[in-house]
Amino acid sequence: MSLLRVNNLRVVFETPYGQVKAVDGVSFEIERGEVVGLVGESGSGKSTLGLSIMKLLPPNARILSGQVIYNGVDLLRLKEDELRKIRGKEISMIFQDPMTTLNPTMRVGEHIAEALMYHYNMDKEEAWRIAKEVLESVGIPAERAMDYPHQMSGGMRQRVMIATAIALKPKLIIADEPTSALDVIVQDHILELLKDLRDRNKASIILITHDLSVTADIADRVLIMYAGRILEVGTVEHIYYHPHHPYTQGLLKSIPKLGSKSELYIIPGSPPDMTNPPSGCRFHPRCPYARGICMKEAPPLVKVEKGHLVACWLYIER
């Protein structure tokens, strides 16, 4: 049985400009110890998807339908106090800017110790001992456990978040653009730590990112999202070496690569305005293969190989 299963999730935002279908019927699953990359641009719904798994959505968001089955329980039906026991201990979230989750008036060690005391009923001394231990394991000297978050660099703060995850041993980590604000060398360190976390704790990771290079480095499977829907799912081999969806193909050809000066492919247009998304396949206004049906009807996700699904009329026989 998979660790987490998302079934036909639909989330909308109420805005002054009307309803926005941020996540529009998304289903996927993640196995134990697996790293799934959730790749998309702005407005693709990737962050909303991550937040809805934890029910951490802003007040103007509504979950219209769907299930998030974790260990046989639908998280969307749990009450707030039941969820609190799961957040952190079972499922942890790492954000792009750790400052938003770290309390500026608490020492970094305290964050970890408090969480241990809450979730594992440890006494203070024991909790602090483990806090210092895990901080050291992510490369932060134990004496800096007494630092406040603002005394640390962005990379160090991200290490603190990962140290917290190591201490609490969650089964699933949702990392939303964990390295996007960091420089490449620090990003490399953080990605190494995430791999380490997966190997050490057998944790599963949902890595939300806009960067196809990051997922190439760490993911087992990749989900390509666009305008609230999944366009393609597959293993990294499928996605990077046999991309099927015109969007995936275009994205890969439009990234500059070191050592190559050959002309970049250009995906025309812009990501859609989500208050007024295109009809049918949401990618059709930018797709070189768009046909009549693409404008009328959204293509379902169909299997092209084992474990490789694509939502595109090119691969559906009619």
Binding site: V184, L191, A216, E237, L258
Partner: peptide
């Protein structure tokens, strides 16, 4: 160091 830290959008090469 900087160059070698850059992930490559190609899983085999990157890993």
């Amino acid at each position: 160091a900087l160059l070698s830290a850059i992930p490559i959008p190609d899983p085999r090469m990157s890993r």
